[in-house]
Amino acid sequence: MTEARIIELKNIANKIRIGIIDATHAAKCGHPGGSLSIADIMAYVYFEKMNIDPKAPKAKGRDRFVLSKGHTAPALYSTLAHRGFFPVEDLVTLRKIDSYLQGHPDMNKVPGVDMSTGSLGLGISAACGMALAGKIDGKDYRVYTVIGDGESEEGQVWEASMFACHYKLDNLCVILDLNGLQIDGPITEVMNPTPHDKKFEAFGFHVITIDGHDFNAIEAAFAEAESVKGKPTVIIAKTTKGKGVSFMENSVNWHGAAPNDEQHAVAIKELNERFI
């Protein structure tokens, strides 16, 4: 990527973050912390990597994305809206009774959502199913899924990992959002799921560890993942929960709380100052 493209992606990620803050502020609830942590990855995947067409969200040969950590739906919605799947103005209807933007992603209501998720551990398995179907049908689409570090405490994540490696799903790329915090506190204190790299490696994954906010590193990791054959790849993305909003960064309090009017104004001001 050129330096100019990286600047573009940074600005897109910033727009995605603003959408996250606007949506959760309007909803007066939701999960901004883990949404902000994946904004850079979402910008890269949807604006640089995936073979998708907002005008044909159900195209057979498209790449697929499963937000296994479904509670960070604001990040997915904001990304899809900015990518042209639906109007950005709709983001503020998040979680409202007459809105199609449910608290957790619904594949039947939201254009561009490839799988309904929310219950942790289920999305990565569904992504495995999509990848297997691609193999069965001889299609060359790729499947991406973002899981949470807290989510990795779910046994199903490891059932899915066994499955992905057993069936050599090299068209599957798992991204672990390693922001270090879950609802009850730091992951290492609540129920330590680390070391992730050694666990995934032992299951048979190709493991890449990166700074999840560095676009050069993100690009290199996704390129490497695509080149690995015979096994799935996991990109362990070290991120900052709440990234981009000073008072939300590295704070467990912003896992599942929305900004009030005052906090919203401060957050938007900070994010606006980040445009390059």
């Binding site: 398995s125 569904a126 992504a127 495995c128 999509m130 990848a131 179907a133 069965i136 199903q156 499955f163």
Partner: peptide, 20 residues
């Protein structure tokens, strides 16, 4: 799918989502 019924059901959902 081995002895992992939960994973099997979600895998089935993923396959079905592609039209199969």
């Amino acid at each position: 799918c081995g002895i992992a019924e939960g994973n099997m059901m979600s895998v089935a959902a993923g396959i079905a989502s592609t039209g199969k």
